[in-house]
């Protein structure tokens, strides 16, 4: 390209350029392939239809949380309340459907909106009260955990008498084919999230705020309002994850949830989203979540003890972020 044609966009970006600009995602995707191939050779039981659907199925909850929290992390924030928030939403789903006998659709919607409320409060605390996201959501993590126990009386709520609830997760859209609905839900959620992040004003502001919040504010954008919207949006995913996990288990378990937030954040980071903000994609996050569940599943199949699985996962996170650092230095 000559300097005089400076105003033109690159007409067609070569494959090499695309790979370079999306290095982390390609790396993550490549790693996923390598891991899958490895386990396929290591065990004949890995690459079977039932195992693959099993892996996808086990990705749903972490995947949903990770997709939602990708938005927050791109704003250079963090959300630690998604794990216990999810447990609280599951409990609320039980309250709405089991205790209050709300119609299925309405109860599910209410549970998802309750997640939005958690996000709204997080957003308010971060944007208006100026509490650092780590602290604001750490507090919310504790609040949600406590409330889940208080509301449920520390006992699981069973959905046995709610017809259709379990189908949300374990039912099959296509009769006869054992492909759980939960996977479809995750796929839809990921596509919607990707469209919102890439094609909407909300998505652009998410990146802008993460790149430089003050400059964005001085450009006349009400960053406080948008931050609240972004946290609320992420909260809706918490609510959905609460529905998905309770539909899968057939019960709302109030004491669970802790630890999911870190797994979701790990998935986001493996997928190439920067904790410093301004950078990240939904595709990357989904791949990150898949890598985590493939690793878990594969290591189980090849009989690696549970304790070692976490050690390996930790190593993967370090390797993923280190690879990204190298790319930045060269870029």
């Amino acid at each position: 390209m000559t300097p005089t044609s400076a105003v033109q966009d690159r007409p067609t970006r070569g494959l090499a350029a695309t790979i370079k600009s999306r290095f982390q995602q390609f790396l993550a995707f490549g790693s996923l392939i390598v891991i899958v191939v490895f386990f396929a050779f290591a065990s004949p039981n890995f690459l079977t239809f039932s195992n693959i659907t099993g892996v996808l199925f086990s990705t749903v909850v972490i995947g949903t949380l990770a997709v939602g929290t990708t938005f927050v992390i791109i704003t250079a924030g963090i959300d630690l309340s998604i794990g216990t928030g999810m447990a609280l939403c599951a409990v609320m789903s039980g309250v709405f459907l089991v205790n209050w006998h709300m119609p299925l659709l309405l109860g599910v919607l209410a549970a998802i909106l309750f997640g939005g409320l958690i996000g709204l409060i997080n957003g308010f605390n971060v944007a208006i009260l100026k509490i650092p996201p780590f602290i604001a959501t750490l507090a919310m993590m504790l609040v949600a955990q406590g409330l889940a126990l208080v509301v449920s009386g520390s006992a699981p709520i069973y959905f046995t008498d709610v017809p259709g609830y379990l189908e949300i997760s374990t039912g099959n859209l296509i009769p006869g084919v054992n492909f759980p609905n939960a996977v479809v839900v995750l796929a839809v959620v990921a596509v919607v999230a990707a469209v919102v992040l890439n094609k909407t004003v909300l998505g652009r502001y998410t990146y802008s705020i993460g790149s430089n919040e003050e400059a964005t504010a001085l450009s006349g954008i009400n960053t406080k309002k948008w931050l609240i919207i972004i946290y609320t949006l992420a909260g809706l995913f918490i609510g959905l994850a609460g529905v998905m996990i309770s539909a899968r288990l057939g019960s709302a378990q109030p004491a669970t949830g802790m630890g999911y937030e870190l797994q979701a954040i790990a998935a986001v980071v493996i997928g190439g989203t920067s904790l410093f903000g301004g950078k990240g994609t939904i595709v990357g996050t989904v791949i990150g979540a898949l890598i985590m569940s493939v690793l878990n599943n594969g290591l189980q199949i090849v009989s690696v003890p549970q304790e070692w699985q976490n050690v390996i996962l930790g190593g993967v996170i370090l390797a993923a972020v280190y690879a990204d650092n190298i790319r930045r230095k060269e870029g």
Partner: peptide
């Protein structure tokens, strides 16, 4: 740099 630009975003953004 601090208050004007999104340094890590493209010129268009």
């Amino acid at each position: 740099k601090r208050f004007g630009l999104l340094l890590n975003q493209d010129v268009n953004a």
